[in-house]
Amino acid sequence: MQKFSVLDGVVMPLDRANVDTDAIIPKQFLKSIKRSGFGPNLFDEWRYLDHGEPGMDNSMRLLNPDFVLNQPRYQGAQILLARENFGCGSSREHAPWALEDYGFRAIIAPSYADIFFNNCFKNGLLPIRLDAEKVDALFKAVEANVGYKLKIDLKQQTISASDGTVYKFDVETFRKHCLLNGLDDIGLTLQHVSEIKAYEAKHRAAQPWLFT
């Protein structure tokens, strides 16, 4: 997994609540058996004027000029600013894969759906929870300043704006550790093989019907 330490990036605002994972990456692209290549179809139904299918040459498709992702001022954005309950719906990890493949490395929103939130951490993508009022202030700041950037420092757990405003954010210790060091969860868990085996033996003795 890609490490995350400090990110200084352009912010793109997506001003709607309850953005679901079907919107982030529509179902037709889930037929892929790969983990990469979802970026060109991120927000496909909002981003293009025509209907997208796997295998199409996306560079030939008609872009929706009204959608933020297509606006020149947000090109190269690495930080997505969103509203509450971002990533609700399906458990598809294709959603963080698409965000990451497009180039986003962090999301700032008042709240996230649990499964999506969890999936982000497995892919080097940092989802930050910030109070709704602070998020609202950031939406206004992004709107007012072309090329608006924020600096996210995971170690310090801070978001810094160029005007000197600094927001502190919370992140679970274990997730932070894994993200800072780019650690693979499976490798970490396999350090505890003997404990898993001991648990399993005890569990089997207590509920043998689970092991038939």
Partner: peptide, 21 residues
């Protein structure tokens, strides 16, 4: 019973466990 992402599918396949709070 709960839904998981693909990284966690792999994690359960390899370790029979999940990391969670």
């Amino acid at each position: 019973a709960f839904g998981i992402g693909t990284s966690e599918v792999e994690h359960v396949m390899a370790t029979q466990c999940l990391l969670m709070k």
